[in-house]
Simulated assay, not measured.
Amino acid sequence: MIAIAVVSAFPLVWMVLSSLKTPAEAMQTPPVWIPATPSLDAYAKVSELISVGRSFANSALIAGITTAGILVTSLMAGYAFAKYRFRYREALFAITIATMFLPPIVTLIPLYRLVGSIGLNASLAGVIVPNLANAFGIFLMRQFIAGVPDELVEAARLDGASEFRIVFTIVAPAVAPALAALALFAFVYHWNSYLWPLTVLQGNSSQYPIVISLSRLLSYNRSAVNTGLVMAGATLAVLPPLVLFVFLQRFFVRTITASGMTGQ
């Protein structure tokens, strides 16, 4: 397990160390593993080439709002599919799951035309709105909410609790690890999303997220002199999802353990 962890972490460690190297160390052969004089000059240069603060704010807005929307819609839809009995429930659930098998590129043009028809082109709202619901999130929540005792829900109803109160004060705490895992998946995915924001925000560079803004650094990747510059940009982009994972990893592991023990 230690060997696998080292192999998995090696690219990340190399990226961070390379971002601290001087141009001479980046070009040295054989390669220098540990920089002799760590420098933050590459990070300063990245800040000069792109608007790091604005791009980070755009990414945080896109990933944060989208993740919150996915959590709410997945929790409510998962509750309906798990605890309600209504006609065509299984058929609707099967259709929802079937959308998971559609490659994103297939829905790109229809979604773009839809966003344009409601006047959200070239805006952050156009990037966010189509992703506020997620079939995987609904599936995950439905599977975990199905394990919440029906007696608990019925007791809350007998006490006069509304369905919204049941969902957010009783069901949500019971499936908190699954919600945390879903939040991690959603945030990382939409933080790293490239094609959809690029399609919607074309021509509006002031609202580009950090991943698209960093693509400007690709032209600097042709020379080893600029290796530290590219690695510094990549380190900045990966930092927020990595920090989030550190905080949510215990919930993530607990979710995997629970699903394995209960067969969900």
Results as ranks from 00 to 15, higher is better:
Val175Met: 08
Phe164Gln: 04
Phe144Ser: 12
Ala9His: 01
Ala133Arg: 05
Met231Gln: 05
Phe56Trp: 09
Ala125Thr: 06
Ser215Glu: 15
Ala133Leu: 11
Glu25Gln: 02
Ala234Val: 08
Gly126Lys: 07
Val72Cys: 10
Val171Tyr: 00
Thr262Ile: 14
Ala5Glu: 09
Ser219Ile: 09
Gly78Phe: 02
Leu40Glu: 12
Ala258Cys: 06
Arg87Thr: 12
Ala5Gln: 09
Leu49His: 02
Gly203Lys: 11
Ile128His: 00
Val167Leu: 10
Ala133Lys: 04
Tyr84His: 12
Asn204Val: 15
Phe164Asn: 08
Glu90Tyr: 08
Thr37Tyr: 08
Asn204Tyr: 13
Val148Gln: 02
Phe168Asn: 02
Phe93Ser: 00
Arg216Lys: 12
Met27Glu: 14
Pro38Tyr: 03
Ser193Asp: 15
Thr199Gln: 08
Arg85Tyr: 10
Arg85Gly: 06
Pro103His: 04
Val200Asp: 02
Gln202Thr: 12
Val16Glu: 03
Val7Lys: 00
Trp33Glu: 13
Ser193Phe: 07
Arg85Glu: 14
Leu201Trp: 04
Val16Asp: 04
Ser39Gln: 12
Tyr194Ile: 15
Arg54Asn: 11
Val16Ile: 14
Ile62Ser: 06
Val243Asp: 07
Ala174Phe: 07
Val175Phe: 07
Phe187Cys: 01
Thr37His: 14
Phe251Ile: 01
Ile97Gly: 01
Leu217Thr: 03
Leu111His: 02
Leu179Ala: 09
Ser213Leu: 01
Arg89Val: 11
Ile210Glu: 00
Tyr194Asn: 04
Ser19Met: 03
Asn192Trp: 09
Tyr84Met: 15
Ser213Trp: 04
Thr262Lys: 07
Ile212Lys: 00
Leu179Arg: 01
Leu158Gly: 04
Ile128Cys: 00
Gln202Phe: 14
Leu132Asn: 05
Phe252Leu: 15
Ala232Asp: 04
Ala5Lys: 03
Pro31Val: 10
Pro38Met: 03
Gly160Val: 09
Thr107Gln: 05
Met1Ile: 12
Ala174Arg: 09
Val148Thr: 13
Trp191Arg: 01
Leu229Arg: 01
Ile4Asp: 07
Ala36Phe: 07
Ala57Tyr: 02
Val148Asn: 10
Arg89Tyr: 14
Gln264Met: 12
Phe144Val: 13
Leu239Val: 11
Lys45Tyr: 12
Arg87His: 09
Gly53Gln: 12
Glu90Gln: 10
Val72Pro: 02
Val106Glu: 04
Ser117Met: 04
Ile145Gln: 04
Ile170Gln: 05
Ile256Leu: 15
Ser117Leu: 10
Ala42Ile: 05
Ser123Thr: 14
Pro11Thr: 00
Ile128Leu: 03
Pro11Asp: 00
Ile128Arg: 00
Pro209Lys: 05
Met231Glu: 05
Leu242Met: 11
Ile50Pro: 00
Val16Met: 06
Asn204Trp: 11
Gln207Ala: 15
Gly126Pro: 03
Ile212Cys: 00
Pro130Phe: 10
Pro241Asp: 08
Ala172His: 13
Thr199Tyr: 09
Ala24Arg: 11
Arg216Phe: 13
Leu218Ile: 15
Trp14Lys: 07
Phe136Met: 13
Phe101Val: 13
Glu151Asn: 06
Glu25Met: 11
Gly116His: 09
Val129Gly: 01
Pro104Gly: 10
Ile62Tyr: 04
Arg142Ala: 11
Arg87Pro: 03
Met27Phe: 08
Ile70Asn: 03
Ile70Met: 07
Phe101Ala: 15
